[in-house]
């Protein structure tokens, strides 16, 4: 794998098995994403976008793959403990449904990745919350925030550890157009300043246009 590549995937297949019936989702996907690149994947529901993102995020082992290099590591056959370590150190996630922990404050949600890594907070949380426009809301629990604010917290949480790779699964899917645009601007700004590699799934053609590259997907295959 070239040092320039953040993601290098070839011959990727995945099949779900429901009630004894095989349901193939990915059919020999190949993808290369350079470091610092902002890529969006578009496609209809059920075409395998989220499955691909889960596999690239090392949350789902593929049924079969010729090559699955993520964040500079060949990840095929790695044990869950090792995959968890790569997730912890190199990958940030932003989900459509935010997936914040409801029992703790926005501040603690953002601090969570650093706590998990065992790193000191060193005053990183407040500036980041200020940066995403939540300066006065750090003590609020997710249930006390609007959906737009929750997604800002989720972005701050995904970026606080400065991961090399940010995977975003329809981050604007639950937001109105104004909030969606704001979130996208935020991601773009962080991408420009911090240079993270971003792989984002979206349905929105207009939002997808901010990326360096747009990949279309249909029936488990890329149709660039």
């Amino acid at each position: 794998m070239s040092d320039d590549l953040m993601i290098d995937v070839a011959g990727l297949y995945h099949t779900y098995r429901h009630a004894g019936v095989d349901e193939p989702v990915l059919h020999g996907v190949a993808l290369r994403v350079r470091r610092g690149e902002f890529v969006t994947i578009m496609g209809p529901s059920g075409c395998g976008k989220t499955t691909l993102l889960n596999i690239l995020g090392l949350m789902l082992p593929p049924t079969r793959a010729e090559r699955l290099c993520v964040a500079g590591r060949q990840t095929l056959g790695l044990a869950e403990r090792e995959r968890a370590r790569i997730r912890r150190t190199a990958i940030g996630f932003v989900f459509q449904r935010f997936n914040l922990l409801p029992t703790i404050s926005a501040r603690r949600n953002v601090a969570l990745p650093l706590k998990i890594r065992g790193e000191p907070l060193d005053g990183q949380i407040e500036p980041l919350l200020e940066r995403v426009g939540l300066a006065g809301l750090a003590h609020k629990k997710p249930g006390q925030l609007s959906v737009g604010q929750q997604q800002r917290v989720a972005i701050a949480r995904a970026l606080v550890g400065r991961p090399a790779l940010l995977l975003a699964d329809e981050p604007t899917g639950n937001l109105d157009s104004a909030n969606a645009q704001a979130i996208l601007s935020l991601l773009s700004a962080f991408h420009r300043e911090w240079g993270q590699t971003i792989l984002m799934i979206t349905h929105n053609e207009r939002l997808a246009a901010v990326a360096d590259r747009v990949i279309h997907m249909r029936d488990g295959r890329f149709c660039e």
Binding site: G57, M59, E80, R81, A84, F93, N99, L101, P102
Partner: peptide, 16 residues
Amino acid sequence: TRETGVLKALGVAGAD
């Protein structure tokens, strides 16, 4: 379950 999924996504090990 979802929160557990989030923690796992953030890299929390099963033992933790």
